[in-house]
Design a protein around this nucleic acid. Structure first.
Lengths: 212, 212
DNA sequence: CAGCCGTCTTGACGGTTGTCCAAATTATTG
DNA sequence: CAATAATTTGGACAACCGTCAAGACGGCTG
């Protein structure tokens, strides 16, 4: 094992070790990213390590070298997915100069996300459900959920601010609302319901002034 | 095959045939109910037909006799689950004579559901996520989702009625909100977060007057 | 009672799974 | 350049999966 016991017999400098650790971790992320491709396509239940390997440039042995376990791999995937996801609307929030501008920017990104990244998002909902069964997932999933709640809250407070108001509901309720709407829209969209996206946009457009 | 081709050569009376069909279907439901036990424990991804059989009084062959497929079995489970679920709050809705009575009755049932039937509900969220990958699930899942939305809507309209008002939001938004809150609370509850239930109740108690 | 039919059991099948490992390859060090 | 460590490979393994089929069981009908 390479990255295991860093006990007494370490003659390398600390700098060299952290460098190696970084390289090791970069490789892990590289593998996780490749795994996400297949996971998004097939879902957690149907995805095997071999399938992941076959759909990527790596052999299945490498995955076992970098990850102690299948759960370890998927946990890494989830954690990596988080970073991408949470900043999605930040640019819109910081650049928008009016309520309308924020609304339209938010809606545009929402629609684009639903259409272009449907696979990644269904994986998120899949893994969040898995966390209800598999304790190993819970910590990461709860953490991501918190981040997403904070993301929605940033949008809401900015929207309220632009109207000199304050959000009328709690961060938890607001996130629950948007998450529920998005989840429902995603399922309908994947079921080829062409009204899924416009319905979602209409609903959010109607809702935003109500809440803030 | 028993229940397949009912072509030309049927000498039995229609009455006898429907009787047999009913018996056949009752058995299916019996098996589905047994399967739900294991599915609720392990989740879709980890549940095999053999595991279902071993945790029940049936052999794995019976399941293949009554269900053409693993998906067929699970579809039947989902459909059966629906009937149980959708009427849960109906008694409270019809008997409540005041807003407070409805609120307290609803909250009590909500808390009980979250605590006593956590396993069934995590399975529901699991299968709904599976529907995003597996087209065979979509029809049933979308149908159940509609039923649940209607269930929430019955509560909301009754609550509004008792205050001589009308609900301020759409059925879809309302369902999304409650579903999102419940899902989040369920995950926290399963992660042994003792504040999950009271937090949910507080949130709903605060939300109800806002919405209607 | 004999024969049939619906029901159920049991074991087997090919394929896939996660895991592990020994050997090959590449990088890094002395 | 040697030698040591890190990385990668691809095959082997037992266990498990969904599916199937041959046959046993038991009740009903003729």
């Amino acid at each position: 094992m390479a990255r295991q016991a860093t006990g007494a017999a370490q003659r390398v400098t600390v700098a060299a070790e952290t460098l190696r650790d970084e390289k090791f971790n970069a490789r892990r992320i590289e593998l996780a990213e490749a795994a996400l491709e297949t996971l998004g396509e097939l879902g957690f239940a149907r995805t095997s390590l071999r399938e992941i390997a076959q759909n990527s440039a790596f052999t299945h042995g490498v995955f076992h070298y970098y990850f102690s376990d299948k759960l370890d791999l998927i946990c890494c995937c989830v954690r990596h997915y988080k970073a991408k996801c949470v900043t999605r609307y930040d640019e819109v929030v910081t650049t928008a100069r009016s309520r309308d501008e924020l609304t339209e920017g938010f809606l545009a990104k929402l629609a684009a996300t639903l259409q272009d990244e449907a696979r990644m998002h269904r994986l998120w909902y899949d893994l969040r459900s898995q966390a209800m069964f598999e304790p190993a997932f819970r910590k990461d999933v709860l953490e991501i959920d918190k981040s997403l709640e904070a993301m929605i809250w940033r949008i809401a407070t900015r929207y309220a601010e632009l109207g000199n108001r304050k959000p009328a509901s709690s961060p938890a309720a607001l996130y629950a609302l948007f998450d529920g709407l998005f989840q429902s829209a995603l399922l309908r969209h994947l079921a080829s319901d062409e009204k899924a996206v416009p319905d979602l946009l209409d609903e959010v457009r109607r809702l935003l002034p109500t809440i803030c």
